[in-house]
Amino acid sequence: MQEKTRRLHVVAEYTGLKINVEKTNSMRINGKKKDVIWLNDKEIEEVDTFLFLDATMDKTGGTEADIGRRLGLARTTFVSLAKNNRKKMTKSLIRSIENALGARILKIHWPEKITNQQLYERTRSIPLPSTIKRKRWRWIGHILRREENSHVRTALTWAPEEKRQRRRPKNTWRRSVEREREEMGLDSWKEGQVVASDRRKWRSLLNGLMRPPEQGEDKEFNK
């Protein structure tokens, strides 16, 4: 290995290149000899792993170390994102998949362009978040029409007396539902119970949830 390194150094100098010993490392795979490699009277450091073209190389010659490093980087980046950013990223991913499937159904390919509004109109579909929200409140309507002593009815408005443990998410399913209830114009669960008792009014309220994309969401989609 020493002779090969020397010959590489000679050829590199002949072509006008120079090997930086400080940035050069050596690694042996299944090597029996442990001789030190020298270059310009300086010892080349021997390592067990090193990074080459953004890929981790190790003595085993496998990909486990590289995959582990990449998963660790992705996990660290995801955790470092703010909670709101993770939520927006998830919604954006769902919207992208939904638009891609709609464009495939309509056989729209690059460089053709179509807006989200046109995509929903031509496929006669509703945004997935709105569909999920409508199904959730349709189920809540069934709960509000149950008897007062029903367990599921009690669980809808019941709040535990103990404080939530540390590191638990601040936003809960109940809090998000109560926020949606206020956005629907229902100030309390009592008012929601009155509206839910009239199936025609409740159905009309749910139909209002099946909205088209908001003005800021209607963007061109490239496929």
Rank of each mutant, 00 (worst) to 15 (best):
T115S: 07
D58H: 04
M27W: 00
S188Y: 03
G192I: 01
S130H: 11
K87N: 05
I19L: 02
R199V: 14
K34T: 14
N85A: 15
T56Q: 04
P127I: 03
R136G: 00
I44Y: 00
V194M: 14
M57C: 04
L93G: 04
D48M: 08
Y120M: 08
E182M: 13
G216Q: 14
V194D: 10
R6K: 11
P129N: 10
K113Y: 11
D218I: 07
N84Q: 15
P111N: 07
K34H: 12
R124K: 15
P111T: 07
I105Q: 10
R167L: 10
R95M: 03
G192Y: 01
K170N: 08
P127K: 02
N25L: 09
T76A: 15
T131M: 11
K83L: 08
I143F: 07
R75H: 07
E13G: 12
K88H: 07
E46I: 06
T154L: 14
T63C: 12
I44R: 00
S92I: 14
I126Y: 13
K135E: 10
R104G: 04
M1N: 08
T115P: 00
N40I: 09
R164L: 05
K88V: 10
E214K: 12
Y14W: 15
R211M: 12
I132F: 05
V195T: 02
T24S: 10
R7T: 12
E191N: 13
E178N: 05
E45L: 12
T63F: 09
T15Y: 15
V79W: 06
E178F: 02
I67T: 12
S92K: 08
M1R: 08
R179F: 04
K34F: 07
I19D: 02
N149Y: 12
S197C: 07
R166F: 11
R164S: 09
R146N: 09
A65V: 05
G141K: 00
L119T: 01
T157G: 02
